[in-house]
Design a protein around this nucleic acid. Structure first.
Length: 731
DNA sequence: TCTCACACCTTTGAAGTGG
DNA sequence: CCACTTCAAAGGTGTGAGA
């Protein structure tokens, strides 16, 4: 019997999955069937305007539908919808993309160079119980957004495959099947919502996002499994209020080079070195510093002297220099087996550093062993450079060919870094524009690039930061363990009429959706209710003024409305999103299509002609059929940049999707051409967001829905520790 | 493989100082 | 009152010992 398999992330995909959509369909299918995994599935709901009907996993149908009735007057007797009925859901009316496709978001990964180096050396990302930031920090630059419209930017991290890894013989190797997946959490950028103009004016950084392996984490950190591979995803949602998040369109972007393996302790010295060299907080460990590293070196030198002396005794003829080299070589090889030893007396060479990265990467064991070689290939030829370069131009400090490292931490002493860079940086990376970010006042990561613009902006959303940066990021917890039934796959088709249909009712086994309270980032009495809305919002920054100050009454009401965790019902969650232009189509290892939502597949199929079908790194997939991939990087030609996958696939939507073209954003990185065909191939084709934006037309129904959402919002505020406490006392 | 205490570092903002 | 400097606290890092 086939075991549930994780849906691997589609490399080069700009929109692989809807964060709230099952992106591990097989898992759902199996778990649902076997019932061994609480089908924690993000709440779903019909858009208020009923623009598109969606199917829900059978398990969710009942509980969710009940909630939907009041939220969206779609006319569908949700309560009567069983899993089978859900399967019959159809778009209530023709999609009208032109109403919302006013933008054509393009996203470019910042600090791409560093990410690539990071990827070349391995893909380790440290996670700790108390939470650890991502390094390199996930930063992106957005273009093509509607300047006036407000957007919410989110990020989440999903399992990249279904394997557990181990670092053996200096390389990452599959060590078995993955452990049960951790509860998913969606990190909402603290500056959300903000206008497109604001987002585009700065680099959007997610450095506040923290990773942890603490499954019971209450801070809202992203929970990951150690020794498992993950893929960060970036989402753009056009919504002027977090409350509307559920009703909005999600555009998802995946950057292959950001894939990583979570570890509790560094395994690969190369990664350690890379981070030490680039992270200001680790400055104390740099070779040039006076920190432990220095001491360590001294110790090393001492030991080497001893070794040297021994050599002399054993080999009286050898001269000092040669001995020294020998000693170093030994050291290098022993400490960093994966790195070719360099016969130099420089201490720097004792440890692998960027200097040997190039040659290294080519035969980097890791790349061979981690099935991610595909990514490494993009290092020197990614399209990003150009865009990044443009980006870099924004920050004067980045000019002058300063090492990319400094891009990340402007505050860091450029001098030392520059020097290091000169010595270590690989040629191919030096010109890289990765000259990023650090557009803030001398500040580095914490600069929160987006902040200033927001503050200075006309009127920053009041719901957001109140002058101070939020402590705990707003997060939406989702879980994709529950998904579509494979059985339905056989029925999948791509009738244009269903273009807007996002979901299929999968399985419909009638089991209620179970939301594990522990999956929420809040505790106490709130947990129960949290269970109901967990998928929507797990935690909210205390600074998110808009959601603070809730009262228990409302919560109680909400609970009474069926949001209680007891019922394990998922909160209505509109997934009006659409054909994320880059939704990938994949073949399951079982020989059938991955049960992605229609549109996803349709989109993928549509794009197949334009997108190069590169072999997905996933062994199963690659073995079966090439997987379509869409990269955030725009396609050079044939395919109109603004054209959407859907357009191709769904003629009916073509008009609307095509217009979104990056409009006036001349400087838009989105226009950055791919560096090379090879890159194109490696990453698969690119298609920028061609998603059919179907923002909800919140009409009269809006109030009802909003009202409910406000309740949610209030619940959300309960994430604040203080409120948690107070709340725990209430019934 | 994980956890923890630790030293080292950056960042941040309050307090102090001088014009 | 403002601008600048100083200082301490908070927080981020990798290390290394121990479990």
């Amino acid at each position: 019997m086939n075991l549930p398999m994780r849906d691997p992330v589609i490399p080069g995909t700009s929109m692989a999955y809807h964060p709230f959509l099952p992106h591990r369909a097989p898992d759902f299918a199996m778990s649902a069937v076997l019932g061994h995994q609480p089908p924690f599935f993000p709440a779903l709901a019909l858009p208020p305007n009923g623009a598109a009907a969606l199917s829900l996993p059978g398990a969710l149908a009942k509980p969710i539908m009940d909630q939907l009735v009041g939220a969206a007057e779609t006319g569908i007797p949700f309560s009567s919808l069983g899993h089978q009925a859900a399967a019959h859901l159809r778009p209530l009316k023709t999609l009208e993309p032109e109403e919302e496709v006013e933008d054509d978001p393009k996203v470019h990964l910042e600090a791409k160079e560093l990410w690539e180096q990071f990827h070349k050396r391995g893909t380790e990302m440290v996670i700790t119980k108390s939470g650890r930031r991502m390094f390199p920090p996930f930063k992106v630059r957005c273009t093509g957004l509607d300047k006036k419209a407000k957007y919410i930017l989110l990020m989440d991290i999903v399992a990249a495959d279904d394997c557990r890894y181990k670092f053996h013989n200096s390389r990452w190797m599959v060590a078995g099947k993955a452990d049960p997946e951790m509860p998913k959490r969606m990190y909402i950028h603290p500056d959300s919502p903000a206008t497109g103009e604001q987002w585009m004016s700065k680099v959007v950084t997610f450095h506040k996002l923290k990773l942890t392996n603490n499954i019971s984490d209450k801070h809202g950190f992203t929970i990951l499994n150690s020794m498992h591979k993950y893929q960060p995803r970036f989402h753009i949602v056009r919504a002027n209020d977090i409350l509307k998040l559920p009703y909005s369109t999600f555009r998802t972007y995946v950057f292959p080079e950001t894939e990583f393996i979570a570890v509790t302790a560094y395994q690969n010295d190369k990664i350690t070195q890379l981070k030490i060299d680039n992270n200001p907080f680790a400055k104390g460990f740099r070779d040039t510093g006076n920190g432990r590293r220095e001491k360590r070196k001294q110790l090393t030198l001492q030991s080497m002297r001893v070794y040297d002396e021994r050599q002399k005794k054993e080999n009286p003829t050898s001269d000092e220099s040669s001995n020294e080299q020998t000693a170093f070589k030994c050291f290098a090889q022993s400490s960093c087996p994966a790195v070719p030893a360099v016969g130099t007396s420089s201490l720097k060479d004792l440890c692998p550093s960027e200097g040997d990265s190039d040659a290294d990467s080519k035969e980097d064991p890791l790349l061979e062993g981690n099935e991610s070689g595909k990514i490494s290939t993009t290092t020197a030829a990614t399209p990003a450079p150009a865009s990044s370069a443009a980006t870099a131009g924004d920050d004067p400090r980045d000019k002058g060919g300063s090492p990319s490292k400094s891009h990340f931490f402007p505050g860091d002493s450029a001098g030392s870094r520059s020097r290091e860079r000169t010595e270590k940086a690989p040629p191919d990376s030096r010109h890289s524009p990765a000259t990023i970010s650090s557009s803030t006042r001398g500040g580095s990561l914490s600069g929160e690039e987006l902040k200033s613009p927001l503050r200075d902006g006309p009127k920053v959303d009041e719901n957001r930061l109140l002058g101070k940066e939020p402590f705990t990021p707003l997060t939406v917890q989702t879980d994709s363990t529950a998904h579509l039934s494979q059985g339905h796959l056989q029925n999948l088709g791509f009738p244009p009429a269903l273009a807007g249909q996002q979901f299929f009712n999968p399985l419909g086994n009638g089991h209620p959706l179970l939301l594990h309270p522990g999956q929420f980032a809040m505790g106490g009495a709130f947990s129960g209710m949290a269970a109901g809305m967990g998928p929507l919002l797990a935690t909210v920054s205390g600074a998110s003024a808009g959601v603070s100050g809730l009262d228990n009454t409302v919560m109680a009401t909400a609970a009474a409305q069926g949001l209680s965790g007891a019922s394990a019902a998922a909160l209505p969650f509109h997934l009006q999103q659409h054909v994320l232009a880059s939704q990938g189509l994949a073949m399951s290892p079982f020989g059938s299509l991955f049960p992605y939502p229609y549109t996803y597949m349709a989109a993928a199929a549509a794009a197949s002609s334009a997108a190069s079908s590169s072999v997905h790194r996933h062994p199963f997939l690659s073995a079966v059929r090439p997987r379509l991939r869409y990269s955030p990087y725009p396609l050079p030609v044939p395919l109109s940049d603004g054209s959407s996958l859907l357009t191709t696939a769904l003629p009916g939507l073509a008009a609307g999707s095509g217009e979104g073209k990056a409009g006036g954003l001349s400087a838009s990185p989105g226009s950055v051409p791919l560096d090379s065909a090879s890159d194109l191939t490696s990453r698969s084709s690119t298609l920028s967001s061609g998603s059919v934006s179907l923002s909800p037309k919140l009409g009269a129904d809006k109030e009802a829905a909003t009202s409910e959402l406000q309740n949610i919002q209030r619940l959300v505020s309960g994430l604040d520790p203080k409120q948690d406490r107070s709340r725990s006392g209430s019934p």
